[in-house]
Design a protein around this nucleic acid. Sequence first.
DNA 1: CGGATAGCATAACGATCGCTATTCTACAAT
DNA 2: ATTGTAGAATAGCGATCGTTATGCTATCCG
Lengths: 207, 207
Amino acid sequence: MGRRKTYERDDVTERAMRLFWERGYHATSTRDLTEAMGLNPGALYAEFGSKEGLYLEAIRRYESTVVPGHFATLEAPGASLEQVRAVLNFMGGMGAYDGSHLGCLLCNAGIELAPTLEQSEASTARFLDRLTRAFGHALENARAGRRLAEDAPVDELARFFPTVLMGIFVLARARVDAAVMRAAADQALARLASVTAQGRGGPAPVA
Amino acid sequence: MGRRKTYERDDVTERAMRLFWERGYHATSTRDLTEAMGLNPGALYAEFGSKEGLYLEAIRRYESTVVPGHFATLEAPGASLEQVRAVLNFMGGMGAYDGSHLGCLLCNAGIELAPTLEQSEASTARFLDRLTRAFGHALENARAGRRLAEDAPVDELARFFPTVLMGIFVLARARVDAAVMRAAADQALARLASVTAQGRGGPAPVA
DNA sequence: CGGATAGCATAACGATCGCTATTCTACAAT
DNA sequence: ATTGTAGAATAGCGATCGTTATGCTATCCG
């Protein structure tokens, strides 16, 4: 009974996510949000409880839609060297895309709010852990398939690559020259190449 | 003529810088600032013009005091492989220090304010460029001294290392496990080792 | 068709924001 | 000692913040 909602939760959450992503938490007012989401303050608070609640919901949406969009292949059970390379390659080329200046919402959230909002710090740590597991899994697969050297430092590489990605996200948001991102990703790939089975002991890889 | 100031500009700027560093721009109010700096609002505005002016001054102070504290050796004319390794090593061990959760003010500024404050974006880009030049210079020295392979990709490495550092700063602020930072730095060092003169064609370096 | 009710639209709440005006005080010059 | 002035201290400005209360409207149930 009663009136029907004129919005869908997913849709308005998406809009809020994009605004937080672009401007950050504090620089986005609840009036900006209601306007972009196309709903009145009452509806916002009935639906999400608070600005903080909406922010955390936006983070959840990011984790469940944007992150898989970029890392689903890497997280697939059969992921191996190709998927590791593809992810690094893609992120290295990110500077060429419109919208790359947004960076990564989870990275941004960690920087802006880690000292004051525990759940924000946690989301960044969770993201890092997720990436580390994904890279680790794919690298393990590669080693099991004898495509990596026996003693390749899989765990360290699995921690290294996400860190490089975080660095690239920072560069992207600061609108640094795309060539820097490209070079960073290429050097990470070169490190990987130096522990691949055929690359082992060969000439220094990458130009 | 008239009354004497009861503060020193350097001192209050330092205090403001530390507060901005810890909390970010928006989460630091002018009341927080006046309290921490030990001066009244009038003095703050007479001295710095605005909150934004004070922030930019804090950034300048960071660039002229904190940055050299960490990178002076790398920026020295004679810097070579040792200095490159030392910087990466130090940043890799940063997680062990109290206060590492602050991250890097310039990195934080880029993430939080790049979309809305041009000068903040510029400061991050400037920092990146500065690091790139420093690494590039040191690596050039190393190559000239035949300590790097002839065809070592100096320019790419010089762009790669600062990116890794940015990633480590993000991790630090999100209080990620210190071992991740250590691993990231170690893998960057391993990439370097693979293009050093004696490392060339040898076994895959680093455990 | 006529309550009951859930959601929309609007206004406005108290608090805090960045910033400024005012008043008082300490020091320098005469 | 008097006076002019720069700075300190305080109060408070208008604006905006996150949030909530109020009245109106559309829909469901009987």
